[in-house]
C-alpha cells in the first residue's frame, strides 16, 4: 500500500510536472493502448524517461497494473535505487547476464499471469540517442509462450535528446509518442516475431518529421 501511495505522489509531484512543463509529450494513437492486462507494451529505449512517459499515458488508478521490465544489474545496484525501482516504479528486475539456473523471464510470466501490463524494451539497453538497435530474442520467447496476449508497439522520439544515457541533466524538448495497434503472436504468420515487431516499430517513423542529430563529421563520411 505504501508503495502505491508513494508511486502516485511521485507521479503527481515529479513526473507529471516534468513531462508537462519541461518536456511536453505529444501522443498519437492513445486509443490503441491496451487498457487491461495481460498485455505487453514494447518500445524503443533511449532514456530513463521512456518508462515514465509510457506509464504516464495511463491514469493514476491504473498505474499499479504497469510493470516495467528492467535490468537487475543496473536498477538493483544500490539499496536506494533498488528500493525506488521496486516499490515506487514497480519494476520487474531481470538478470541480464551471468549463470542462469532458471528461465530469466520467469518473473514476467508471473506478472502476465496476474493480468498486469508489462513494459518491455526488446533492444535490451538504452543505446545510442534516437537510434533503434536490433531487437533481441526475448520478446519472441515471451510472445510464443503467451500467443493470446496483445503486444502494442510504441515509438518514442526525443527522450534520448532530453535525457540520454550517461548524462544526468535534462534538456527541454518536445517529445513524440506513437502507439500502434496491438498484435497477438497467434494472429501473426511469421517465424521471427522479434524481427516482425522491429519492422513494425520502425515503420511508425514513416511520414513523420523527427529532427535527428546532425552527424558529427559529415566531411569525413563523404
Amino acid at each position: 500500500m505504501l508503495g502505491r501511495s508513494l508511486q502516485i505522489l511521485f507521479f503527481c509531484l515529479i513526473v507529471k510536472p516534468v513531462l508537462l512543463i519541461i518536456l511536453g509529450v505529444r501522443v498519437k494513437g492513445h486509443e490503441n493502448l491496451p487498457e487491461d492486462g495481460p498485455a505487453i507494451l514494447i518500445a524503443n529505449h533511449n532514456s530513463h524517461l521512456d518508462t515514465l512517459v509510457l506509464m504516464n499515458m495511463y491514469s493514476l488508478k491504473n498505474l499499479r497494473k504497469l510493470r516495467p521490465v528492467a535490468a537487475a544489474d543496473y536498477f538493483m545496484k544500490t539499496p536506494f535505487r533498488a528500493w525506488l525501482s521496486t516499490n515506487v516504479i514497480n519494476i520487474i528486475p531481470i538478470a541480464r547476464k551471468g549463470a542462469r539456473t532458471s528461465d530469466p523471464l520467469e518473473p514476467i510470466y508471473d506478472a502476465l499471469d496476474n493480468n498486469q501490463i508489462v513494459i518491455f524494451y526488446p533492444e535490451g539497453t538504452r543505446g545510442e540517442p534516437e537510434k533503434i538497435a536490433d531487437f533481441k530474442r526475448g520478446i519472441s520467447i515471451l510472445a510464443e509462450k503467451y500467443p493470446d496476449v496483445p503486444v502494442a508497439p510504441i515509438l518514442t522520439f526525443g527522450l534520448g535528446k532530453a535525457l540520454p544515457k550517461g548524462d544526468p541533466v535534462i534538456v527541454p524538448f518536445f517529445v513524440d509518442v506513437i502507439v500502434d495497434k496491438p498484435c497477438k503472436f497467434k494472429d501473426c504468420k511469421t517465424d521471427d516475431f522479434s524481427e516482425f515487431l522491429e519492422q513494425k516499430l520502425k515503420s511508425l517513423k514513416q511520414g513523420q518529421y523527427f529532427a535527428d542529430y546532425i552527424e558529427e563529421n559529415p566531411l569525413v563520411d563523404a
Partner: peptide
C-alpha cells in the same frame, strides 16, 4: 522549445 525540437542539432 518547439524551435529546438524542430531544428536539427548536434
Amino acid at each position: 522549445k518547439e524551435y529546438f525540437t524542430l531544428v536539427p542539432t548536434r
